[in-house]
């Protein structure tokens, strides 16, 4: 069984690192501690029975208002895929609010470059050894982390803060003729 093989392989090697492993709606999920993430990812990438050569997605979830208790406030979620065996695997790494640091997986999958930058600017999670960790989507002077649950949807005033340009003359009378 492929499902069992993936779990067994990881458990065999890194039994201390695994917090939880389960299957939900066919998605295989492994929850990890944050310290040795890079080592486990390298194993998953290079192991000849798994060979997860494709990082589909990397993002984070803020569990501040979640109904079920979670180990920590933030979780970084990796979607892995193996082109050779067609395995799918979701990895969740919990990160406490006090220490928002995690190893970058850029050295394994180049895909992680912009995805980690996006996660950094949206959640404020720092990725160690990332070559170019700066804002990706928002202006550089933007303060705050918009995807966190305590950030208001309508923002904190950036969208109202621009110079106002007006016409050199008032041509409103033209419009009155129109009507």
């Amino acid at each position: 069984m492929a499902d069992q093989l993936i779990f067994d392989k990881i458990k065999e090697k890194f039994s201390d690192e695994i917090l939880d492993s389960y299957e939900f709606r066919g998605d295989k999920v492994v929850c990890l501690k944050k310290d040795n993430v890079l080592e486990i990812m390298e194993f998953l990438n290079t192991d000849s029975d798994l060979h997860f050569d494709f990082l589909a997605d990397l993002t984070a979830i803020d569990y501040l208002e979640y109904s079920e208790p979670q180990p920590e406030r933030f979780a970084v979620v990796y979607q892995l895929y193996s082109h050779e065996f067609k395995y799918e695997l979701t990895i969740k790494v919990y990160i406490p609010e006090e220490d928002l640091h995690l190893d970058s997986v850029y050295s394994i999958w180049k895909t992680a470059d912009w995805l980690e930058r996006e996660t950094y600017e949206m959640f404020g999670i720092h990725f160690r050894h990332h070559p170019n960790l700066k804002k990706l989507l928002l202006p550089e002077d933007f303060k705050g982390f918009p995807e966190r649950k305590d950030f208001p949807v309508k923002g904190i005033g950036y969208r109202e803060n621009f110079p106002i340009y007006s016409r050199p003359f008032d041509n409103n009378y033209l419009r009155k003729e129109e009507d």
Binding site: P146, Y158, R159, S166
Partner: peptide
């Protein structure tokens, strides 16, 4: 798109 990063109408800033 009534969100933090969207201008709510360009007519606020240009005619």
């Amino acid at each position: 798109f009534d969100t933090y990063s969207m201008i709510q109408g360009v007519d606020q800033f240009i005619p």
